[in-house]
Design a binder for these strands. Sequence first.
DNA 1: ATTGACCTTGCAATGATTGGAACCTCTATT
DNA 2: AATAGAGGTTCCAATCATTGCAAGGTCAAT
Lengths: 148, 148
Amino acid sequence: MNIGQAAKASGVSAKMIRYYEETGLVMHAQRSEKGYRLYSEKDVHTLRFVRRARDLGFTVDRIADLLALWRDTGRQSAEVKQMAIGHVAALRKKITDLEEMAATLEHLADCCAGDHRPDCPILSDIATGAHGPAKSAHRFGALSDKKS
Amino acid sequence: MNIGQAAKASGVSAKMIRYYEETGLVMHAQRSEKGYRLYSEKDVHTLRFVRRARDLGFTVDRIADLLALWRDTGRQSAEVKQMAIGHVAALRKKITDLEEMAATLEHLADCCAGDHRPDCPILSDIATGAHGPAKSAHRFGALSDKKS
DNA sequence: ATTGACCTTGCAATGATTGGAACCTCTATT
DNA sequence: AATAGAGGTTCCAATCATTGCAAGGTCAAT
């Protein structure tokens, strides 16, 4: 099947399939005489694996590791479990960071009259930094995912 | 004061100060005879505002809005509150997405023996997609913040 | 005068993804 | 057979916030 079919069947966009191939995450696809990429059911299966791992928040690098483990029938499940646990920890860390932000902001919003008057504890707080430094977690733009 | 001092005083790196100036988030700094950027206490105050807003997870675009409201002494606090509430909602949405990922993965990890044997429900699940599609939330790389 | 710290600009890379342009191929209909 | 439209190919650019590097100018003190 062509890349469009594979995309539909796997849930990975054609663009991303090409990207994954280019970066070596997945094998180079076979080509037809005229240069079209050709995909087997097995290829689609692999792409679905990638898609699901991505949905679980793994980075492409981690997914490469997972794919290697998946293909290695002699793997030790301990390795996989370790990766999963490490990832869960990263997720939880990020969650607490976001929760701190949300809690701070929610508290400020609660303190704000939200009417026609200009007085606003939210702005005052941001300006003076009365709340504890909400640590890291920048580059948040990536979170406002287009797909959300 | 020079950009280095302003960076230290505001918590915004010199690089980012230049970037914010270039993109118009903050005003162009005054310059010395030899072209060095010069900052006043007021400038540093503004930069600190930006830093704190960033720490609360606002995007640069939103911060521009916040800055405008901050400077507009005739603003209505309702506007600010609305922005804050909207942002809290975005944060909460992201949190639930991450929580779903973490919960799924944690469950899988719990089901995995994690020993020398190759059998691994984590990999099986990712491969077959037994769990519900964990919706969106890709581009997760940005979450593994270098500052974390 | 030299050193080292600091400043300037500009360009590239990050990570995952999308978009577009220019061009080629396949299939179906006129 | 000609043509249209859908879908394939490559390459290049943009996103968002941030960092790094390089080549060069400036400032302070030794």
